[in-house]
Design a protein around this nucleic acid. Structure first.
Length: 438
RNA sequence: GGCGGGGUGGGUGAGUGGUUAAUACCAGCAGACUGUAAAUCUGCCGCCGAGAGGCUUCGUAGGUUCGAAUCCUACCCCCGCCA
């Protein structure tokens, strides 16, 4: 009965969003002991940006902190130089001390959006690896074998398929394990892909006579593409410091299948509610879109606030669902008094500032006085100037495909007329507004 | 150290002297459709140019040739086998 109650007490902590705990009974004992546990979390200062994939683990850390435990954040200024052994780019430049410090600051600013700063101690790997000698390296490496390293799934796969594995990559798990020894970690957290590294930590700790850390493995969050794990290099990520409407839009763009995972891993919406949602989706009693909107609001509110979430939703409904113009858009200024000598004059093909051309009136423009117009401007040039396209060629392709509109009218030429307040739209989401500089 | 295989556009991967800005697939972008997403259909998918056309690209640097991703030389990198 004792055991069951404990699991009940820690249910949210030990069950929700957790794949595996090694070793669960030991961890429960530790939790019951009342001791303040030392939680380990490392970060790679060459990649200072935190996205929702990382947040899954950070939320779990916070839950532990809420129970009074102590987080030790390790700035991996040494392992960063080895590189994350994902097989991508093997060579990475050594970061200057200055760059590492700057990245650490960037990281922590985002990190503490989720984690409690008061219960976090920050340490740097260089505090111990800075003093490491070759003798230390040999001692450390001699404790493990190549066969052990090849147990790791991604090493094994790469070895089997003939892709390169740098010897330093074997060092990565060893250094990470050594970190656990130095800080005497009680619990290490990671995604399921960290299992091997964390287990090496257990082994090394036991070798030096420490109690082995418990390993807490969480699912890898699937990215916005709905296929691969969220990662920056795959460009399927949602960063924690994205502006509200970007964040909201990206959440809405995830496949429906992913919604419930996101709810479970990234929000505090309780399990009963999630069960209801699952039912409503499967029996079709509620539009999945509505549920996804709730998800998007929850997530935006977590990293910004309620107000931002509401605004982001309004923006989404307006721009994406109703395909209207957003309230705030990029602007480009022309002088209507002297188009060919004002700002952006080089984008003016033919000024002709009297009257207006057919169809160039926007709603509400014609009440008193006529809007001032420029007969022809270089549309690709404008789009390029505002970084709405990558090249003129791309802009022209988009125009040819009818993806570019001026005041809701599709255009088919590169040179078109505009007036004050004209809105040029590219695709669904890219806008620029013509304003006057006079 | 020896022998062999290989480096092609974001990814996988065809292409062994001209018809190749370079097959195909994936990813991406746009249009149609739509309940967000997806699915489906259509188009696009190096850069410059209104266009004709031009320019740059197949690891790097040279060379052969009227003409090279394709041949030659050197170099760099990766993989395998043998030692």
């Amino acid at each position: 009965m004792g055991e069951t109650t404990v699991v009940d007490d820690y249910g949210r902590l030990l069950r929700r969003g957790v794949v595996e705990i090694i070793v669960e009974e030991e961890l429960i004992k530790l939790l019951e002991s009342g001791r303040k546990l030392r939680l380990k979390q490392g970060f790679d200062p060459s990649r200072p940006d935190i996205h929702l994939g990382h947040v899954v683990g950070l939320r779990k850390l916070r839950q532990f902190q809420e129970l009074g435990h102590q987080l030790i954040l390790i700035v991996g200024d040494w392992t960063a130089q080895i590189g994350d052994p994902s097989g991508e780019s093997a060579t990475r430049p050594m970061l200057s001390a200055e760059a590492v410090r700057a990245n650490a600051e960037t990281y922590m600013k985002q990190f503490f959006k989720v984690v409690d700063r008061e219960k976090t101690k920050v340490v740097w790997q260089s505090e111990w690896f800075g003093k490491f000698t070759l003798a230390d390296v040999i001692t450390l490496t001699s404790k493990f074998t190549v066969a052990q390293m090849l147990q790791r799934d991604d090493f094994a796969k790469r070895y089997a398929s003939g892709r390169p594995i740098a010897i330093t990559e074997f060092l990565y798990p060893l250094l990470q394990a050594y970190d656990s020894v130095v800080i005497e970690a009680d619990v290490e957290f990671g995604g399921t892909d960290q299992k091997f590294n964390c287990l090496v930590g257990r082994e090394l700790q036991q070798m030096v006579g420490q109690p082995p850390q418990q390993v807490f493995l969480m699912p890898l969050l699937v990215g916005t593409d709905g296929k691969q794990k969220m990662s920056k290099s795959l460009e399927n990520y949602i960063a924690v410091d994205e502006p509200p409407s970007e964040m909201y839009g990206k959440v809405m763009s995830i496949p429906d299948d992913l919604m419930m995972d996101y709810f479970e891993l990234l929000t505090d919406v309780d399990d009963d509610m999630l069960t209801d949602y699952r039912r409503m989706i499967s029996d079709g009693s509620k539009n999945p879109m509505e549920i996804k909107k709730r998800l998007a609001r929850e997530i935006v509110a977590e990293f910004h606030d309620e107000k931002a979430a509401v605004e982001a939703e309004a923006h989404f409904e307006r721009v994406v669902q109703k395909r209207e113009t957003p309230e705030e858009i990029a602007e480009i200024a022309f002088s209507f008094a002297s188009p060919t000598s004002g700002p952006n004059a080089k984008l003016v093909v033919f000024p002709f500032s009297v009257g207006w051309g057919p169809g160039y009136l926007g709603p509400g423009d014609s009440i008193s006085g006529l809007p001032r117009v420029i007969s022809r401007v270089d549309i690709p040039g404008i789009l390029l100037a505002k970084s709405l396209v990558k090249s003129r060629t791309e802009a022209k392709r988009l125009i040819a495909q009818g993806a570019v509109t001026i005041d809701s009218r599709a255009i088919h030429e590169s040179e078109e007329g505009v007036h004050e307040g004209s809105v040029i739209k590219v695709g669904k989401r890219r806008f620029v507004k013509i304003v006057h500089a006079d």
